[in-house]
């Protein structure tokens, strides 16, 4: 049951920053925040709606990178021609998150900041070596995606900061693929594998409390058993630890054999 709150709407980033600086909790789609408020799990005193802040929404690109505004719905990322052409894995991931309502209501920034461990987007962006840009009234800073989430639902964002956008380098990508296995309502295991001229990265999400990633010069440098052993699996309705660890092993093997076909 929702307790009393105040509500304001921002139309510029400055307004939004002023609001969060004064203690308002930001939201766009509300799929996680409003759900948590309905269950009584959180009770913010003031909300600031960011849906009208145009600067926070949209997909931009240059030769070497694609930048996605934090308030961009997943479905918009999935539909973006630029993303489909240069980051097909990201287009794929954002087209399978949840269901179509989640994809229109939910945003990239909302997903990242909520940091539900069973996330498709976070391991995908870790594998893509994305960099997050945050801003407060004091200034801005960048955080690597792999450093952003420290524990379930725990991210490196101060209450007075906004996640502004996500920058994904695209200059030297050779290979990108996401494999997912889902048993219950949310993903059970996600494996993102990205190869760039500078090296390959494999990231496992949803199985452990936080994503785990590995770097190697070639896909042959990854060992599915080692990756699986490095996970501390969450036990839940989808399975116990030994089962989940084996699922990771299987999915990583499948991802690597997919890469081997390409990178011969």
């Amino acid at each position: 049951m929702i307790t009393r709150f105040e509500h304001q709407r921002a139309t510029t980033v400055e307004q939004a920053l002023a609001a969060v600086a004064s203690g308002a909790v930001p939201y766009v789609g509300g799929t996680e925040l409003l759900a948590a408020m309905k269950l009584g799990l959180t009770a913010p005193e003031r909300l600031v709606d960011l849906k009208q802040v145009g600067e926070l929404r949209g997909v931009r690109s240059d030769d070497d990178s694609i930048t996605i505004g934090a308030a961009t719905p997943h479905a918009e990322v999935a539909a973006s021609l630029i993303v489909r052409e240069r980051l097909p894995m990201l287009a794929n991931v954002t087209s399978v998150i949840g269901n179509p309502r989640v994809r229109w209501q939910g945003t990239v920034g909302g997903n990242l900041c909520f940091a539900e461990p069973r996330s498709d987007l976070i391991p995908a962006l870790i594998a893509l070596r994305a960099r997050l840009r945050l801003r407060s009234q004091e200034g801005g800073r960048g955080v690597d995606m792999e450093s952003f989430v420290s524990a379930p639902f725990t991210v490196d964002r101060r209450d007075d900061e906004l996640l502004v956008d996500v920058v994904i380098p695209t200059g030297d990508l050779l290979f990108q693929q996401y494999h997912r296995l889902q048993i219950m309502e949310r993903p059970t295991v996600g494996v993102a594998l990205v190869g760039a001229a500078t090296g390959w990265r494999l990231c496992v999400g949803a199985a452990g409390y936080i994503p785990s990633w590995h770097d190697a010069p070639t896909p042959g440098g990854f060992d599915a058993d080692a990756v699986a052993d490095a996970i501390e699996p969450m036990e839940d309705a989808a399975g116990a630890a030994d089962y989940k660890r084996d699922l990771v092993r299987t999915l990583v093997s499948r991802a690597l054999s997919g890469a081997r076909k390409v990178d011969s």
Binding site: I183, A238, G239, A240, Y243, D246
Partner: peptide, 8 residues
């Protein structure tokens, strides 16, 4: 017979 039970 969840996937886990089939696996076991």
């Amino acid at each position: 017979m969840t996937p886990e039970r089939v696996w076991r």
